[in-house]
Design a protein around this nucleic acid. Structure first.
Lengths: 209, 209
DNA sequence: GACCTCCTACGTACGCCGTACGTCGGACGG
DNA sequence: CCGTCCGACGTACGGCGTACGTAGGAGGTC
C-alpha cells in the first residue's frame, strides 16, 4: 500500500474518502474502510475529523473545488452561458457518484462562489442585474441541477429518475405518451441538455421586466 | 398501538414505511423499527418483502401514487402548464422528506405516467408534438426537479443545496455577487418558482423549430 | 538524565443495522 | 388423525458509527 509511516492528516483522510466516493459512491464510505485503506486504526481518524458526516462534507467540498473555470472565445453572452453550463455538466459527468452527493448538500466555500459569480457575469452581459439576475441565475441552476440529476443518476446501479420500461401501463389511457413511446424510452443526453439549454437562453433573450 | 392481531401484509408494511418516511425521512427506516411499529417480529417482514431496498422502492411508488391530477378552468395552455407545475410543487412540499427519495429513483407505474401524459397534453395545446414535445416536457421536468430539490432539500436538517452564509469568502473577488449579496442570502421560494416557471413558459411560447 | 505534559494512535465495547437460517405452531386437506 | 405447508419469529453473523480509556512517544523544563 502507501508508505507505512506517513502520518495521518485530515487532508490525507479526505483525499482517500474522495477517491473512494468517486470509485464506489458515498454508501461505500465507512470509517473502518477508510482507516484500512490508510493503513491506520479506525479510531485514529477521529483525531482529525469529528465524525463521519463532517468527513463527507469535507469530501464534497473538495470535489466541488475541483471545478475549473471554463473559458471561451466569444463576445456573445450566449456563448458564455453555453460554455458555463457545459462546464458544469462536464464536472457532473466526470464525478457521477459524487454529483448526487453535491446535489443534496449546501454549497459553500469559494468554489461554489466562483460558479455563481461566473453565472452572474454572463447574465449581466445579457443586460440584467440585481434581483432579476439572481432569479435568472437560480432558474439556470435549477435546470442544470435537474437535468444533471436525471442524466447522471439515471444509470440503474446508481438509482435514477428515468422512466422504467412501460410494462403494465394501459397505453390506450395515455394516447399522447403512446404516440411518442419510442422517444420516451430513449435518452440522448447530449441533445436533451442542449435543447433545454437553448430553451432557457431563448427565455433570457426574450425576457422583459 | 394498532389492534394486536391484525395479520401482517405487504400493504400494511409499506403503509407504515411510508408514514415513517414522511415523519422522519428514509434514514429513519429500519426493518427492526418497522417491525416494532407493527408489533411484529423483525424477520416476519421478510415473508412479505424480499429486502429493505425493495421495501423502500414500494414506499416510493406508493407516495408517487398519491399525486392527484390537477384541474384548472381555462382554455389557455399556459394556465394548464402553470397548474400542473404547481401541483407537482404541492406534492413535493407536502412530502419533503419523501421527495428526495423520489428524485433519486426511477419513476414507474401509472402515477408517473399520468404526470407525463398531462404534461404532453399541455404541450400539445401549445402546438407541439412528437420529439420536440418530449424535449420540452423533459426540460420542464428538469426544471421542476431542480427547483424542488433546492426548495425542499434546503432546510438544514434535510441537507440542502442553498448557499450557506458567506463567511470567509473574499467579497472583492466577486463584485457582482457582492452587489446582490442580500438577494443571494434570502429565498422566496414562491416567487422564485413562479419566476422560473414563467421563464420556461416564455421559452415555449417563443420556440420555433 | 529525569520528569512532566500533551498529542496522537489505537483497542475494546456498545448499540445499532440487514438478513441468512432454522424452528415452531397452527391452518387445512385427506 | 395425520401430513403438509406457510407465516411468524429467535438466534446469530458480520458490518456499522463512535464513546471511552490507554499507551507511547515528542517536546519542554529543571
Amino acid at each position: 500500500m502507501s508508505s507505512p509511516r506517513e502520518p495521518l492528516t485530515r487532508a490525507r483522510i479526505v483525499d482517500v474518502a474522495v477517491r473512494l466516493i468517486e470509485r464506489e459512491g458515498v454508501e461505500a464510505v465507512s470509517m473502518r474502510r477508510l482507516a484500512a485503506e490508510l493503513g491506520a486504526g479506525t479510531m485514529s481518524l477521529y483525531n482529525h475529523v469529528p465524525n463521519k458526516a463532517v468527513l463527507v462534507d469535507l469530501a464534497a467540498e473538495r470535489i466541488m473545488a475541483q471545478a475549473k473555470p471554463y473559458h471561451v472565445d466569444s463576445d456573445d453572452w450566449r456563448d458564455h452561458v453555453r460554455a458555463h453550463a457545459r462546464a458544469v455538466r462536464e464536472l457532473a459527468r466526470q464525478h457521477p457518484r459524487a454529483f448526487v452527493l453535491l446535489a443534496t448538500r449546501r454549497l459553500s466555500g469559494e468554489a461554489g462562489f466562483r460558479t455563481i459569480e461566473a453565472a452572474l457575469v454572463n447574465i449581466e452581459k445579457a443586460g440584467f442585474r440585481g434581483k432579476v439576475a439572481v432569479g435568472m441565475m437560480r432558474a439556470m441552476v435549477s435546470y442544470l441541477l435537474g437535468t444533471l440529476m436525471r442524466e447522471v443518476a439515471t444509470s440503474p446501479e446508481l438509482g435514477g429518475i428515468a422512466l422504467s420500461p412501460f410494462e403494465g401501463v394501459d397505453a390506450a389511457a395515455f394516447p399522447l405518451s403512446a404516440e411518442v413511446i419510442d422517444e420516451l424510452g430513449t435518452y440522448d443526453h447530449d441533445q436533451e441538455f442542449e435543447f433545454g439549454l437553448e430553451l432557457l437562453i431563448t427565455a433570457l433573450e426574450r425576457y422583459q421586466g
